[in-house]
Design a protein around this nucleic acid. Structure first.
Lengths: 352, 352
DNA sequence: CTGAAAGCGCTTACAG
DNA sequence: CTGAAAGCGCTTACAG
């Protein structure tokens, strides 16, 4: 394979000049530039990433950090949870345009592992930027190691405001509140809630939004189940809630996987959705669109967030030692009403 | 950040010895080894990938090549087509265990672009192995550049037998034949077929399997539509086939996306699935499981294939200049009967 | 079992 | 506008 020396020799210049041309730096006579470009093309020369990375200050790598357990669970279950795919979609294209490579890195969020895995990653790869997904975005160890390494990072959907870097936050609380209000507007007054994993800030925010909407209408939140974002926990939550003597006419699950599990639980108890119980989800996963019945859910602009994150990192505007909220330009959530929710059956309406 | 020199100094040895310890090479006294390990741990030392890659013969990178247009289309449509996710799932874990990084690279399969993009990729990254998905797996330019670079590669679902490297092939023909026979066994004799993109070998094989099964029963294959694996082409195919005066009682689409499009087309024409027309797909995508009705489809062991591909590459057993079929240990396809297929309505049965 | 030397292919910092 | 020198942090090939 041709190296910078071959190109320099062929063009009759020094390697420094070839370097200037390849990096589109100024101060090269147009004629020289063209000679170098011709030589590079003739020799089919492409600079080595590792050499550039070792000698210079850039690695041309952006890493996306995801939780290993959760990601593997989603891959294994094939339930159409496409959070990671959306992040890849949003971040891949800007990286590609800039000649960067996007690396998906799974890390274990156990106290002991996270530090070792992250340090290895940062030292080995020296990524020019890191995109943090929940729960990494709020993980003390992750944030500390990143800051120590001086690596710019963008946090997706973080809870903490003081985590450094740039944050891209969706208003989970407002979204959950809107969904709850939607259920109330359909006539529901007895509404259950299935929580997500509490390690996730978004999970807590969704719960808060639900509780706020209920309180605003003077409704009691009596059916709350602690799930963990998995289908199974949604199923368990649905069973637990719907087996009670007094059961709600609607259930709001903190994500689509759990909502689908909840619908299955209802069906196993002989309850139809939405005839006997309405069920709403959160995420607008592809599974939600193809479920039976199609799921009423909330869509958040994950692709746009990831794209914004990548662009911010690529532009060099993110500094690890600041706290920047970059979510201004982001589109808002959208409530997507579909067929899993309906007004409660008349006989089940409590009297006013 | 600590370098190999720091560790060497701290342990009182040469950098060569540190290198030996870090790479688990033999010929280091146990006592020396422990001293080096202690020093490395104390200094939080992790070797630099770019330095290792530049000096040595390994890059610790495995690249997956996918078609840019197709991948972006799948990401954008969010229709639960999880081929890439399955490949990632299968290949990520072995890479991780081996300290390797998996890179997903989109390339454009236009004649002009593919060579430039691939050469840049190979020269810049020097991946230790490449996993080729369709249609790259049969692309002359891709195969030529890979061989020229001496990069080991595994081809997933290739058509050509002479493409070099290792091939992992699924029996698309037998699978399509089995599905067609299944439809026939339900009582269908008038069966339509929607083809996938003909650039894909699997697409041609599926068509062959369909035709073979029909011919074996002495049935005419009169309703064939040329699709391209997209939902829209399935919709168009469904419309075209079902609008004809004489229409089939079942349609077999070459993938799930097209099958879903076909069902939508039927619905728009006032035809129920499976009441008026049975529809079968291919892939067992997550969308197929959540569709309404759930799709009868074929599952192929993509995750297992990708895992096998990664392991073969990591073990160093793949050579670019041979033609190896590595699919022996792979599980077979499975026909997944679900609710989108049923016996034809009595009045539509042709007389024997 | 251990180490000194050379070199991988670039960029940096500087000189002219 | 151009280039000579040094160095990034490792592995390779060799010597002992």
């Amino acid at each position: 394979m041709a190296t910078i020396y071959d190109v320099a020799a062929q063009a009759g210049v020094s390697i420094k000049t070839v370097s200037r041309v390849m990096n589109a730096e100024p101060n090269v006579r147009i004629e020289t530039r063209e000679r170098v470009q011709a030589a590079a093309a003739a020799l089919d020369y492409h600079p080595s990433l590792s050499a550039r990375s070792l000698a210079g200050s850039k690695s041309f790598i952006i890493a996306v950090i995801v939780d290993a357990k959760l990601t593997i669970d989603h891959w294994r279950s094939e339930r159409g949870s496409d959070y990671l795919a959306r992040v890849q979609f949003g971040a891949t294209l800007p990286c590609r345009e800039a000649g960067y490579h996007l690396l998906i890195e799974l890390i274990d969020h156990g106290k002991a592992m996270v530090r070792r895995e992250l340090d290895t990653l940062l030292a080995a790869l020296k990524p020019d930027g890191v995109i943090l997904t929940p729960p990494s975005a709020d993980d003390d160890v992750v944030l500390d190691r990143l800051r120590r390494a001086g690596t710019p990072y963008v946090r997706l959907g973080p809870g903490r405001r003081d985590g450094g870097g740039m944050s891209l936050r969706l208003n989970d609380r407002a979204a959950a509140r809107a969904m709850t209000q939607y259920l109330i507007s359909l006539g529901h007054r007895r509404i259950g809630f299935i929580e997500g994993d509490r390690r996730y800030a978004s999970s807590r925010a969704r719960r808060d939004g639900f509780l706020a909407a209920m309180a605003a209408e003077g409704l009691e939140a009596k059916w709350i189940h602690a799930g963990d974002f998995t289908y199974q926990s949604g199923y368990d939550g649905g069973q637990a809630i719907l087996k009670r003597a007094s059961r709600p006419s609607a259930i709001f699950a903190s994500n689509d996987d759990m909502a689908l599990g909840c619908i299955a639980a209802a069906a196993d108890l002989g309850l139809q959705t939405p005839g006997d119980v309405s069920v709403a989800g959160f995420d607008d996963s592809s599974g939600s669109r193809f479920s039976r019945p199609q799921l009423t859910t909330l869509r958040q602009p994950i692709v746009e967030m990831a794209e914004l994150a990548a662009r911010a990192l690529l532009s060099g505007s993110v500094r690890p030692d600041c706290n920047e909220d970059g979510g201004q330009g982001l589109p808002n959530f959208t409530l997507v009403p579909r067929l899993s929710t309906a007004p409660p059956a008349a006989r089940k309406m409590p009297r006013p």
